[in-house]
Design a protein around this nucleic acid. Structure first.
Length: 641
DNA sequence: GCCGTTTTCGGCCCGACTGTTTTCAGTCG
C-alpha cells in the first residue's frame, strides 16, 4: 500500500508540465488568459518560497498565488500519482513536435498550428523539409520571406548554445560595456538589464541599455564591435548582434530623462512587470517603458506622463520602496514592498572573510601564503584554508600527516601576519570528503583540531535519493562538521545536481546549526537560490564562499555567491561570514555543542530500540529513531522573517 | 483558469515591429 503522503513529482517537474499544458492550449487556440494562468502557476511553483511537498501535505496548494481549484487539483494528481490524465489527453491531440516548432524565432503557436493543419508538419524536421521545398509559402498568410526565416531560424536553433552560466557571460558583457564606453565618449549611462541584471544563474540573451546624446553613434559602434559574429538588426536607437558563442545581444539607446522607466521595464522579470502594472492600475497609473501616466478606471489618461530618471522614482511614484533587481521574480516581492517588509539583502561589502579555498597542497595552483595574502588584499579579515581530504586522490587530497604539516605552516604565517601588523587570520580547515558509505576521511580527533571543517560530496552523486541524502544528513550531524559545501554537486550545463531530499537537508541544517554553503564558483552556483530562500525561512545559517583555486577567482566568485544569496532573500544575519571572527567561532562552537546534545538524545533512543530487541543500522537510527524534530531557529542568529 | 479597494462575473500588462495585407494578426520583449 503506497504511502499517501509520498510525493511522486517535484515542483520542477510539475512546472514543466504546466508550461507544456500552456503551450499546447495556446496551439489549440485556447484563450490567452487560460494559457497564461498555467504559465503563471508554473512560475509560481518555480519561485515557491517553500517546499511544495510540505505545502501539498498541508492541503494549502490554493495558497500559492495563481493556483485555484482547477490547477490545485492537477498538482494534487501529479503529486499523488506522478501523472496527469489531462496532460496525457492533450499530448494525444497536439503533437509535441509543435511545441519545438514554436522555439523558432518568429514562429509562435498560431503559425505552428497553421503549418500543422495545412502542411501536416509535426516537428522541426518536417518543417525544415517543407520550407526547403517551397511549400511553406503556399500557406495563406505566410510568404517567401517567412519561409526563409524558418530555414534560418532552424539553423540558428541548431547552432545556438543553450543558456550559459552567468559567470561565463558577465565578464564578456563587461568587456562589451567597456569597449562601447571607450568608443563613444558621450555615453552617460550604460548598464545591463534583463536576466543578467537579476543575476539568474544562467543567461539566455543579453540586454544593454544606454543613454547618450547621439544614439545613432552608439548603435553604429555597437554593430561594429569585433565580438559581433552577426548583425541581426541595426536601427536609429536599437540594435541586435549575435556573438560568436551564439548569444544574442540587444542594445537600446534612450533619453536620460526616461532612463529609470526603461531600466525597470527591460529588467523584468516579465511576471514582475505584469504584477507591478496591475498594482499600478489599482493606484491609478498606467506603466510602460516611457513612464507612468495617471489614468481613470477605464485606463484613459487623465494627466501628463511622469518621467522617471531612476528606478527608485518608478517604484516611489507607486508608493513603494525600490525593489532590488535580484528578487523581481513575482514571488512575493511586491507584497513585501507594500507591507514594508522587503529584506535588507546581503552585499559583497558585508563579507568579512572566505571559508572555502584551496592551495597547491591539493588541487589549487598557488601557495598557502599567496592565497592568504590575496584574501587579505581584498580586505578580508579571515580566510579558511580547505584543501581536499585524503580519499579525493584526483585532487591530491591530504593525508593526516600532511594536514598536521599545514597546521605548523599556518601557525607560522599567522605569527608573521601579526608581526607585520596585518589584521588578518588564516584559519585551518579542510574540505572533507563524505565517502560513498557516508563515513568521513579523518577520525573525529583530527577534525576536532581544525578550525572550520567544510564537508562535501564529490563521489556517488548519482546515488538514489535516500542514500545520498542520508550521507549528507549524517555528516551534518557530526559535531566536527561545520559547513556543507556546494550541497547539490551540480555543475551548470555539465552535471545535474544530486537527487537530494532538500526538505530533509534544510530541516537538518536548521536543527543542527550546520551551515549550508552558497558556493560562488561560476560553474557551480550551488546552493541554488530557491533553496536559499527555503533555508532563510527555515532559519538555516549560510556561508558565501569562493571555493577559489586561484586568487584571481576571489572577487567574481564572491560577487556571484552574494548574487545567489540575494536571489534567495538572504540578509547579512543569515550569512555566517559577514560576522567578525570571534562571533563566527562562537557560533561554530555553539552549533557543535548543540549537535553533541542531539547525538546523545538520539543514541539514548537507539539504546531503547536495542533494549526492545529491534536493531537498526546507525544512519537508519539517526533518521528514524524518533519523530522528526520540528525545525528550530538556528541559534542566536536567525530570528526568521 | 484565476481573482476581488471595480467585480463571485467580467475582467485579465503594454507597446513595437513585421509580413502579408487593404486593417491586422502574430510574435516578441
Amino acid at each position: 500500500m503506497a504511502d499517501e503522503t509520498q510525493a511522486h513529482s517535484t515542483a520542477v517537474d510539475i512546472a514543466h508540465i504546466l508550461n507544456e499544458i500552456g503551450d499546447m492550449l495556446e496551439i489549440k487556440g485556447e484563450s490567452s488568459f487560460k494559457t497564461r494562468a498555467y504559465r503563471r502557476a508554473a512560475d509560481a511553483l518555480l519561485n515557491l518560497p517553500a517546499d511544495l511537498t510540505e505545502v501539498w501535505r498541508a492541503g494549502r496548494l490554493k495558497d500559492i498565488p495563481g493556483v485555484g481549484d482547477a490547477i490545485a487539483g492537477k498538482i494534487d494528481e501529479l503529486m499523488r500519482t506522478g501523472k496527469l490524465a489531462f496532460h496525457e489527453r492533450l499530448i494525444a491531440e497536439v503533437p509535441p513536435g509543435l511545441i519545438a516548432m514554436t522555439r523558432i524565432p518568429e514562429v509562435g503557436p498560431r503559425t505552428a498550428l497553421t503549418l500543422y493543419q495545412k502542411l501536416g508538419v509535426t516537428g522541426l524536421g518536417d518543417l525544415e523539409a517543407a520550407a526547403r521545398e517551397g511549400r511553406v509559402r503556399t500557406v495563406p498568410g505566410l510568404g517567401a520571406k517567412m519561409e526563409q526565416r524558418i530555414i534560418l531560424g532552424i539553423e540558428t536553433l541548431r547552432r545556438a548554445s543553450d543558456r550559459l552560466p552567468i559567470g561565463t557571460v558577465l565578464p564578456v558583457v563587461r568587456e562589451l560595456l567597456a569597449m562601447l564606453r571607450a568608443t563613444v565618449p558621450d555615453i552617460t549611462h550604460i548598464e545591463v538589464a534583463g536576466s543578467l541584471r537579476r543575476r539568474q544563474p544562467t543567461i539566455g540573451d543579453i540586454d544593454i541599455l544606454v543613454t547618450a546624446a547621439h544614439p545613432l553613434s552608439v548603435v553604429q559602434a555597437f554593430a561594429a564591435l569585433p565580438q559581433a559574429a552577426e548583425i541581426i538588426s541595426e536601427g536609429d536607437t536599437k540594435g541586435s548582434i549575435r556573438l560568436r558563442n551564439g548569444m544574442r545581444v540587444d542594445l537600446m539607446v534612450l533619453e536620460p530623462t526616461r532612463y529609470g522607466s526603461l531600466l525597470q521595464h527591460f529588467t523584468g522579470s516579465r511576471q514582475h512587470n505584469i504584477d507591478l502594472r496591475n498594482y499600478a492600475l489599482h493606484r491609478g497609473y498606467m506603466i510602460n517603458e516611457y513612464g507612468l501616466t495617471p489614468v481613470d478606471r477605464e485606463h484613459q489618461a487623465t494627466g501628463e506622463t511622469i518621467l522617471c530618471a531612476t528606478e527608485a522614482e518608478v517604484y516611489g511614484t507607486l508608493g513603494l520602496p525600490l525593489i532590488p533587481p535580484e528578487i523581481r521574480e513575482a514571488s512575493g516581492e511586491i507584497e513585501a514592498a507594500i507591507a514594508g517588509t522587503l529584506p535588507n539583502l546581503v552585499t559583497v561589502d558585508d563579507l568579512r572573510g572566505d571559508l572555502h579555498l584551496h592551495s597547491d597542497w591539493s588541487d589549487g595552483v598557488k601557495t598557502i601564503e599567496q592565497m592568504a595574502r590575496a584574501a587579505a588584499d581584498l580586505g578580508y579579515k579571515y580566510a579558511n584554508l580547505t584543501d581536499h581530504s585524503a580519499s579525493l586522490f584526483v585532487a591530491n587530497g591530504l593525508t593526516i600527516a600532511r594536514v598536521r604539516q599545514q597546521t605548523e605552516i599556518i601557525k607560522q604565517l599567522n605569527a608573521q601576519f601579526q608581526a607585520e601588523g596585518l589584521n588578518f587570520r588564516l584559519l585551518h580547515g579542510c574540505e572533507m570528503e563524505i565517502k560513498l558509505d557516508g563515513s568521513l576521511d579523518y577520525p573525529d580527533e583530527v577534525l576536532a583540531e581544525l578550525d572550520v571543517v567544510v564537508a562535501s560530496v564529490h563521489v556517488g552523486l548519482r546515488q538514489p535519493r535516500e542514500q545520498v541524502t542520508a550521507r549528507m544528513v549524517g555528516a551534518m550531524r557530526n559535531p566536527n562538521v561545520d559547513i556543507i559545501a556546494h550541497p547539490s554537486g551540480r555543475l551548470l550545463g555539465q552535471r545535474e545536481p544530486a537527487d537530494l531530499d532538500f526538505e530533509q537537508v534544510i530541516a537538518t541544517a536548521a536543527e543542527t546549526g550546520t551551515c549550508l554553503e552558497i558556493n560562488g564558483s561560476p560553474d557551480r552556483l550551488d546552493l541554488d537560490p530557491q533553496y536559499v530562500r527555503w533555508g532563510v525561512q527555515a532559519g538555516v545559517m549560510f556561508t558565501i564562499d569562493s571555493d577559489a583555486h586561484h586568487p584571481d577567482a576571489y572577487r567574481l566568485d564572491a560577487e556571484l555567491g552574494v548574487a545567489m544569496a540575494r536571489r534567495g532573500w538572504a540578509e547579512p544575519r543569515h550569512i555566517l561570514n559577514t560576522r567578525p571572527l570571534d562571533e563566527l567561532l562562537a557560533y561554530i562552537d555553539e552549533a557543535n555543542k548543540r549537535k553533541i546534545k542531539l547525538t546523545n538524545r538520539l543514541s539514548s533512543t537507539e539504546k531503547r530500540i536495542k533494549r526492545n530487541g529491534w536493531r537498526r543500522s546507525g544512519i537508519d537510527a539517526l533518521q528514524q529513531g524518533g519523530p522528526p524534530p520540528a525545525p528550530t531557529p538556528a541559534l542566536s542568529a536567525c530570528d526568521g522573517h
